[in-house]
Design a binder for these strands. Structure first.
Lengths: 243, 243
DNA sequence: CGCGCGCTTGACTAACTTCAAAGATGGTGG
DNA sequence: CCACCATCTTTGAAGTTAGTCAAGCGCGCG
């Protein structure tokens, strides 16, 4: 059986189903800095590079991304970092079961989020019909994506990881061939379990081989999507020309 | 901030909350091979090495492990394998949202499972009060564990992976110092993103250093749990004696 | 326009894998 | 009950991939 893993990853859109959360509840809540009361939550601004919440911290709020991109990461004590995901508009962040947040959230770009105090969010889940079920669907999809990423982290080679990443980004952006990469090379590396140097070298190699082209550091064009998909799936791993 | 990641992983027990599913529903359903009708599902036997379901297959059933251990894995087309988890008693398997199963399930030991046809399971989730919420909790816990494993796969060194694995197994078995390892070295390797040879060599190294002892291949005694926890957390990575 | 940070590249190194072979283990049948 | 065989585990030597270190480049911001 041919694994469809990579393709499935590309099709996955986290939390798109949650868009309908709006207007479910409109309560006061103390406005934080730069907060604006909006139907169902407090609208807040987060600047690029700012930390929204940190791993281990008491989980007081649930956030939904309105605009911008966040990185979610975990750290080892010596500073090694694993980015467990990027949160794009629609995505919920900070859903901790008990205890503190399970990862940190930092804005990669300037961003807006909607904030729901934890207790209020939980009340909504109890009261709004169908919300628990939608949350369940979203969480399953997250889990599914997490398992694809385990396969990537544990078993894919560096080129395969980079190819998978490019296709995943493309899928999030409507599968156009021109992909915008909002995060830096270090973030990509910590997402794929590589170093920033390795990411650079492999992007350069893909450019040399004509699989991709770059109009700028953060804008990449997928010139040969089939080749990229074969690479991401683990076929043709050695089909690229040597340096 | 010191990451508590590893400790949290150890404390995690998948699907323990689901024990109460019993007796929720008792319907006929065609009995499969060796199937016995039991409150809430069909009781089935699975022999060691048998495949319960395969990645991509139409997801017709949801299973709960009654006895035994399963490995859940995904494959790349050239045979590289990533084990995304081990399912122990209480654990639900085969919860696919739409389309086929997201991974394969194979019995490591002789096992018993309870089978719920998919439609029936979904009806139960709708009808049994609190079940959706319990499922949500379980899925969050799964996701949490998956993110810990991303950190392990992407950023931990080989010794740290093996140490983490031993502690995770110990935590599943009531944290006693004598740990039973039901799976082979190859399974451990495919779970940790290593090769079986590397797993062997590092277990031997841990033995030489007095951190663990082995009365048999599948029975390991944790002699210095503190050291093992430091290793698993990524501290002391180089504190072991060289070969 | 200039400066700084992040990106890129190359040479070297280390960690893990691969390959090969010997050593346990346990299940089966004589 | 023991011997045999297949399979899994263990160990060592050689090979590869990705990481580390170091230096130059270039984009974008002020």
């Amino acid at each position: 059986m041919i694994s469809q893993t990579t393709l499935r990853t590309q099709e996955y859109r986290p939390f798109a189903a949650f868009a309908g959360l709006d207007g479910a509840c409109a309560a006061p809540g103390r406005p934080g800095p730069a907060a604006v009361a909006v139907a169902g939550g407090l609208h807040e601004n987060v600047n690029a590079g700012e930390t929204l919440f940190a791993e281990g911290e008491e989980s007081e709020n649930v956030y939904q991304v309105i605009q911008g991109v966040f990185r979610l990461h975990k750290l080892l004590s010596d500073g090694r970092r694993q980015i467990t995901g990027f949160a794009q508009p629609g995505h919920l962040m900070g859903l901790a079961q008990t205890g503190g947040y399970i990862h940190s959230a930092e804005a990669i770009t300037q961003a807006y989020v909607r904030r729901y105090p934890r207790a209020r969010f939980e009340r909504m889940v109890e009261e709004v019909p169908g919300l628990a079920h939608r949350l369940l669907t979203m969480t399953f999809n997250e889990l599914h994506a997490a398992q694809d990423r385990m396969l990537l982290l544990g078993r894919k080679h560096a080129v395969e990881k980079v190819a998978s990443f490019l296709l995943e980004m493309a899928a999030h952006q409507g599968a156009a061939d021109e992909v915008h990469i909002p995060m830096g090379r270090g973030d990509i590396a910590d997402y794929l379990g590589l170093t920033k140097e390795t990411v650079c070298k492999l992007l350069s190699q893909l450019k040399r081989d004509g699989v991709i082209a770059a109009s700028s550091v953060s804008r990449i064009r997928l010139r040969d999507r089939d080749r990229l998909e074969d690479l991401a799936a683990g076929d043709l791993a050695d089909a690229l020309q040597a340096a």
